[in-house]
Amino acid sequence: MRNPVLKVKDLRTSFLTDDGEIPAVNGISFEVNPGEVLGIVGESGCGKSVTSLSIMGLVPTPPGKIQGEILYNNENLIRASEKRMRQIRGNDIAMIFQEPMTSLNPVFTIGNQLIEAIRIHKKWPKNKAKMRAIEILKQVGLPRAEELMNEYPHQLSGGMRQRVMIAMAMVCEPKLLIADEPTTALDVTIQAQILDLMKRLNKETDTAIMMITHDLGVVAQMCERIVVMYAGEVVEEADVKTIFKHPKHPYTVGLIQSVPDMRLKKDRLYSIPGNVPKPGSTKTGCQFAPRCPHRNERCLAETPPLDTLETGQKVRCWLYQEGKGVEAIGRAVGKG
């Protein structure tokens, strides 16, 4: 196996507020391998977006505070200068966002914004950059690429704008593309098209994709490996088949159970009781314990470590530490 493109080690991002330091990401570690699609899954507010912004160096410090290691080609991005980060952003690591409607600058043409993305990193003459811009627009499946160059974002639909965003991110052929809920704001049919496009670009260009989402459907369709986050921590990590067939962490189990299944006729869809704890309200013990149906006293008192099981699956839960009920919960899900 090749060296990972990105290695995140014990990343902690917190924000200094009037109420003190509030942690948003609480010591997470994961790796992204070249050419793979990694899914990062979790509910809103679990620290997914802050993780991606931390990697891009787009968390303003202060009030933000980032600790740990983010290794890109063995270079720790947390220590990198702003100048170095500017070289990396867009060129090595690119990012697309949730809101295609507002993520493009309304007062510049598509062409202007695309050519700019190229010329920041490559000292190409304008004409060559323009040719490349048209080429990438065609590559992301946009019709009338030449005309689009002179059009403004408001003349495009949401799906087209997200394609332009993807084109802009992919134009310098980055090693890693961070996609922060890229399809959340789109219609279902458009969602499928955008996911297909990203999958195709991933195959064609060998760009690794870090897919941040709360949508398990997206994950199942796109990803090879999955990291499940809860309250700023990684609670489970495994390949996509294992996650869906043998989920270990009670939170993952709950997430999968709450996806509607056409084959099962149930009166009521499962939902995990309770809410995600507010950042800053974290306490000792397992963060998920207050909502967990399997909790015991130890869960409330001590924080479980992220443990690697024999299968290679990583899980943060006392149940598997004690060696009991390992498969019992997995089966209780009634899936697969």
Binding site: M56, L58, G90, N105, A117, M165
Partner: peptide
Amino acid sequence: RSDYIRTARAKGLGSFWVVYKHSLKN
């Protein structure tokens, strides 16, 4: 504070251009 300024920064654009090109015109 808007999304497209975040996009401009994510492209690797320097602060001067983010401020005087992307922000100012808007």
